[in-house]
């Protein structure tokens, strides 16, 4: 195995360990190093050079970015979320044919949809939606976000609030809370 790849893999292991410990300072530090290391792989976007270990590298890089996204949610850092998600996205879209689909893909996509909803970027929300396949739309994580948006638009705030109880993934809670906060404010205005 390529020594560089090993190095990244080991770093990633350490990151995961710290991640489990919820040691976010270490995580951030390690993540930053990992990202720099990743820039040296020529098989990653945007170059996509078909090197021998391309699949492993791509998978590993995707894994790292997925963790980065999840971590940013845990740290409740929306900017970092957006940044990491943008960097992760090519692995879902452009590299789809090279590597097997990630189990985390739909939850993270749903998470992103949720974020757009929270940030009230409805236009982008729908843009993202258009890009999804019909299979993806069936996925509970995605469906959740879609239903939320519909309820939100209809003004069925009770459904929005109750949806918090049925989150498909634990990471969703953060955004759901934010959403709930918004809705309750809206309700207060609505019901004088």
């Amino acid at each position: 195995m390529d020594p560089k790849l090993t190095e990244v893999a080991q770093g990633f292991e350490r990151f995961k360990a710290a991640f489990v410990r919820n040691d976010f300072d270490t995580c951030t530090r390690l993540l930053s190093q990992l990202k720099v290391l990743l820039t040296e792989f020529r098989s990653l976007p945007p170059l996509f050079e078909p090197t021998r270990s391309a699949i492993q590298e791509l998978t590993l890089a995707r894994d790292i970015y997925e963790h980065a996204v999840v971590m940013s949610v845990k740290m409740e850092d929306q900017e970092a979320f957006e940044r990491d998600f943008c960097q992760l996205k090519p692995y879902y879209t452009d590299a789809r044919d090279c590597i097997p689909q990630s189990p985390q893909e739909y939850p993270i996509l749903g998470l992103n949809l949720l974020r757009l909803l929270v940030q009230n970027r409805i236009a982008e929300f729908h843009t993202e939606l258009e890009l999804l396949s019909s299979a993806a739309l069936e996925n509970p994580c995605i469906k959740h976000a879609i239903e939320l948006e519909q309820s939100f638009m209809e003004g069925a705030y009770n459904r929005v609030l109750s949806a918090r109880q049925s989150v498909p993934h634990e990471t969703y809670v953060y955004f759901m809370d934010l959403l709930a906060k918004t809705v309750s404010v809206a309700c207060c205005v609505d019901v004088p």
């Binding site: 990202k35 720099v36 976007p45 996509f48 943008c86 960097q87 090519p90 452009d94």
Partner: peptide, 23 residues
């Protein structure tokens, strides 16, 4: 197989990273 990036979003996102190397 030629894989092409479809968006520069990732790169632009990387620009706002803190680390100079990434930029």
């Amino acid at each position: 197989m030629a894989t092409m990036v479809s968006s520069a979003g990732a790169l632009l996102a990387m620009l706002s990273e803190n680390h100079t190397t990434l930029k």
